[in-house]
Amino acid sequence: MIDLLSYGAFFLSVALSYAIICLGLNVQWGQTGLFNVGIAGFVAIGAYVSALLTTPETVDHLGGFGLPIMAGWLGAALATGFATFLIGALTIRLRADYLAIATFGAAVAIHLCILNLQSVTSGPFGIGFIPRPFANLADRPLAFSLANFALLAAVVLALYLALEHLARSPWGRVLRAIREDEPAALALGKSAVRFRLQAFALGGAIMGLAGATQAHFIGYIAPDNYQPILTFQVWAMLIVGGSGNNRGAILGAVVVWGIWALSGSAVASLFPAEQQARAASLQIVMIGLALCAILLWRPRGILGEARIMSRHVLRRSPPATPLPSTPSET
């Protein structure tokens, strides 16, 4: 019973750490319509920055500056926000899918840097001994799990409230106007670019924070944690939950992580040991198919969106078809 409770808390904590990434992605995609395919890279920046700032001094990698966990988290958010800002500034003025390509490239480059800059990141070996919150409870598994869960839940709740507040603020309303209404965006001109860039960087900062919380929750990070599959999972979470909807982002994270964990244990029990690596790819096939199916049949996700995303996603065929927006007629 206690084991089950403890596992439940552990499971939910992991799911909530994904929920944080999802909330960050929702600021970028759901609120602003910016497509980020480099989530794994940005999460990695957060994780590594926080790890370098908070681990005890070592010769294996840069630092260990031994700072408090909170300082690590703050640094992670700032550093990742800055990195996303740079990528955004490079492409945000160009066609929408250049941002996608650039973020995809950034994730590849970030992964490569983590792998190759051994003196900074200790390369493929990863970084261990990342201080975990409530380490003093470590010998009481249930209390430890519950405390960590409570911390993550508090972070998610705080972010949720802040983002909801932000969406209703003048800033959020401008963002929505920019996304919904091309002419309004054009009328805003340069400042529209600035607003979108701010949203992109804010979303990135949240992803960085998520990376940091994950790193401290697990206590160990390595380059292979940050493969494209992570990006993909987070997208599936947001799409399942319903983009543009913060509650949907959180729910989607829990649901998809649940499906992932369940299918993982199904694979483990159904396939012989030597076939498991192979069978695990079926899990990914399944998530891929699910994402496509949702795009086809339920583009608004489980919860749908709070009326925000609909027109943007469903209408407006861009290929030189000025149909719905032809000003003269209809």
Binding site: D97, L295, R315, P318, T321
Partner: peptide, 10 residues
């Protein structure tokens, strides 16, 4: 008539 970015995501 889905937006470009939906196609990219697909």
């Amino acid at each position: 008539g889905s937006a470009v970015i939906i196609l990219v995501m697909a």
